[in-house]
Design a protein around this nucleic acid. Structure first.
Lengths: 329, 329
DNA sequence: AATTCTGTTGTTACCGATATCAAAATCGGG
DNA sequence: CCCGATTTTGATATCGGTAACAACAGAATT
């Protein structure tokens, strides 16, 4: 930068102004400086800039696992909005472990990120303390927690699960089973179960512990879960899989075993991925606003960081979802 | 840091040493400093550290699109290895556009990343120039380019495509069609086509332009492409889809139209994702070392950055792939 | 014409760490 | 017990920018 200043015959301060607040510099200076910048091929040093101004254009994002198609839509929404404002994304995986998450938060804070996006809504007390102390804006977006850290952009897992279960009930299914990922350290799973149970109650069905299943990740888990419930409760007539991979795995297993869907058993899913629309039968599911979540998260963060919109502190954005009725129910 | 130094009654330099080169400090000092660090809840400022030391623990990664399951495995490999060494990942999407990529490279360079990982192997001349000038290590890992920028960790798209086509030939298929994504600005597609053509030649089959198809992304594109080739060349007996989404889409279309697979037409795919193993019939495909690519990329970058392993400059790692024979062929 | 205001540019200090080299403490051997 | 070698610690400059305020010129006001 010094080189540019010398070449243009101005002070470094003027160079800095041309690059950051061009309006405050006369036309003539601006051109002289920009020419020098081009001639030298000068690249500003963001580290120095951030250190000096105590402002950062980096946002830290922590997801449970990168290789999960449902997060990627959110990441894309985030990334596209942030890029437009010249912000960068730092991404890390917590592996569904709050302690790991805390560690990553620490690393991000020491990188002085301007904001933080957390998919999980379960945090260690130390993590919460560190975030509070840092004072940077945070958005949680995997669920709508009881006690938000700061801002929230999400949909309600409980409401979505409730809506789908009610939908199945209204279609006339009487023995509706529910499958989700293991719910320890996963309040999304817990809330989905709550929604399911609330809907059963509303429908006047009795809950049956044999019809509430938990399993691991992957298509194989979906296959296992449908086989398990068919075995233990043969009269089951619908299976609501709270996860799109589980639902797909369940469908494939039904195809292999020649269980007609929805004749023998109906299937419903959570999250609308391309796959569910293209299998036959196509699978009834919930369309969740994954991309929108990323977009809104980015916007609200930028408002806080750039415009200092302090009135947004603690705001909760509850985005809409939709039941998509297809052939499988 | 000043506060910590004062509290421990030492100089900031000693604090810095305790944190970065604990071996060079006496046991007593170390404990005094660490206590002060804990009491104050001190978080080092990485920006300041990087600026001062001119070293960075951030790696920039540019992928064409984040929401593509095949990249996520590579990202995971990268992320896991980097995390262990305290490195961070900055991720951005180029949207398959070299100009966009150049822009992102510029941003990353001004953030002074310690290394760069590019999935694409097509770059603008300016991008190449900027990278050269910056002197930071770079890994390309989407393909094995003719003229690498620096280091390469990948498999050969041409060889993989050749291997699968030969496999189909050896199984006795005589009219093998080939489908890929549009090949403009996509040397992966181009190389896969080359491999296919080379194998046809080797097998003594004549290439037929009606059996070489290009299409867009998504399951619908796979459906479209299989319908198209069945229409224009009814005697086709195998379709090699150079992309796992295309193959899955093609299979679903065959199921809808009741074209028996592999009886009426055989299907082969590129990349081994969970889905291809679980559909019925399961799909013959290539297992590519996606995760390994990320892992090796991270390792080789860290060697260059931490150990200054200059002999690795320009090295090319050609990882192995494997043909997975399944029910669809 | 003197005074105030406005807009542009420059000066200086500082952001929070590390590199470098000098100073002080420790150590072993004669 | 002294001296040089070795280890440990500290003082200072610096990394590359920006904040804050000062200086200055020309326009507007009185």
């Amino acid at each position: 930068m010094r080189d540019v200043a010398v070449r243009a015959g101005v002070s470094t301060m003027t160079v800095s102004r041309v690059l950051n607040e061009p309006g405050k510099v006369s036309e003539e200076m601006r051109e002289r400086v920009l020419t020098a910048v081009r001639e030298i091929g000068y690249l500003p040093n963001h580290l120095a800039g951030s250190l000096s101004s105590n402002r950062s254009t980096t946002i830290g994002l922590i997801v449970p696992s990168i290789d999960n198609s449902i997060y990627t839509q959110t990441v894309k929404g985030l990334s596209e909005v942030l890029k437009r404002s010249g912000f960068q994304l730092m991404i890390a995986e917590s592996g569904y472990d709050p302690n790991e998450e805390e560690e990553l938060i620490t690393v991000f804070l020491s990188h002085r990120v301007g904001g933080l996006v957390l998919h999980s809504t379960e945090h260690t007390p130390q993590a919460i303390e560190k975030i509070r102390k840092s004072g940077i804006p945070v958005v949680e977006n995997g669920n709508i927690p009881k006690e938000p850290l700061d801002m929230v952009v999400s949909y309600s897992n409980r409401d979505a699960s409730y809506a789908m279960t009610m939908h199945l009930g209204r279609l006339g299914y009487r023995r509706i089973a529910f499958a989700s990922l293991y719910s320890v350290h996963n309040d999304r799973s817990q809330d989905r179960l709550k929604g399911y149970l609330a809907a059963l109650k509303q429908l006047g069905h009795d809950p049956d512990p044999r019809m509430v299943l938990e399993t691991g990740r992957g298509l194989a888990a979906g296959a296992e879960v449908v086989a398990r419930v068919m075995q233990s409760v043969p009269e089951v007539d619908a299976l609501f899989c709270a996860g799109e991979v589980l639902a797909a795995g369940a469908l494939f297993e039904c195809q292999r075993r020649n269980w007609s869907v929805p004749g023998r058993i109906a299937l419903a899913s959570f999250d609308d991925v391309d796959l569910l629309r293209h299998v036959s039968p196509s699978i009834t599911t919930l369309r969740l606003p994954r991309y929108d979540i990323g977009e809104r998260t980015a916007r609200i963060l930028l408002s806080r960081i750039i415009d200092g919109a302090d009135h947004l502190r603690g705001s909760v954005v509850d985005l809409k979802f939709e039941v998509i009725q297809r052939e499988s129910t």
